[in-house]
């Protein structure tokens, strides 16, 4: 579940920041809608793989594993530039990555044993992260059945 897309589709925005070329998130509306979606998935016996750049707004009980992806500044700069981000938005994101803001938020918001920092610079990193998450998923299933 791409939560950014979910928020966009459900109009979970309370305004727009033109300077940063981004929408201002309506967290309460988003969480209320997600609560229903997570409950529905649980009722149907399904798991959710969610991705979002904000992690601290979600209730802790929703997630069993939190992967914090990290990239080197050179690689991240190229990616953001390729996306055509305005300079201010790019700088803020770069600064956030350098200051490991998301990682700190994740560590402050979830139990330390479920938060894992992983590199995401190359395709090999991506494959390794996917493999790791899938192995963890299988282990979780075997532990809970």
């Amino acid at each position: 579940m791409n939560i950014g897309k979910f928020a966009e589709e459900n109009k979970c925005y309370e305004g727009r920041d033109e300077e940063l070329d981004t929408n201002v998130l309506d967290e309460d509306k988003l969480l209320d809608l997600l609560e229903v979606a997570f409950q529905q998935a649980a009722d149907e016996g399904k798991g959710i793989v969610a991705d979002f750049h904000v992690c601290e707004i979600f209730p802790e009980r929703w997630f069993d594993l939190v992967l914090v992806l990290r990239a080197t500044t050179e690689i991240l700069f190229d990616r953001l530039e390729a996306r055509g981000y305005p300079e201010k938005k790019r700088s803020e994101n770069m600064e956030s990555e350098i200051m490991q803001v998301i990682l700190d938020e994740a560590r402050a918001s979830y139990a330390p044993e479920i938060v894992h920092e992983v590199p995401s610079n190359t395709v090999e990193d991506l494959q390794s992260n996917v493999q790791r998450a899938c192995s963890w998923w299988d282990q979780w299933l075997s532990d809970h059945t």
Binding site: M1, N2, F38, A41, A42, G45, K46, G47, I48, V49, A50, D51, F52, H53, V54, C55, F58, E60, R61, W62, F63, D64, L65, V66, L67, V68, L69, R70, A71, L76, R79, L80, R83, Y85, N93, S96, E97, V101, I102, A106, Y110, A111, I114, S120, D125, L126, N129, V130, A133, W137, W140, L141, H144, T145
Partner: peptide, 26 residues
């Protein structure tokens, strides 16, 4: 924390700064 979960499948959150590859990984 979701320690006493009754879920049959786990939930995973992939997070990070925009551009790190969250969507591709998820």
């Amino acid at each position: 924390p979701s320690t006493a979960t009754s879920r049959r499948r786990p939930n995973i959150l992939i997070t990070g700064t925009p551009g790190v590859g969250k969507t591709s990984t998820a």
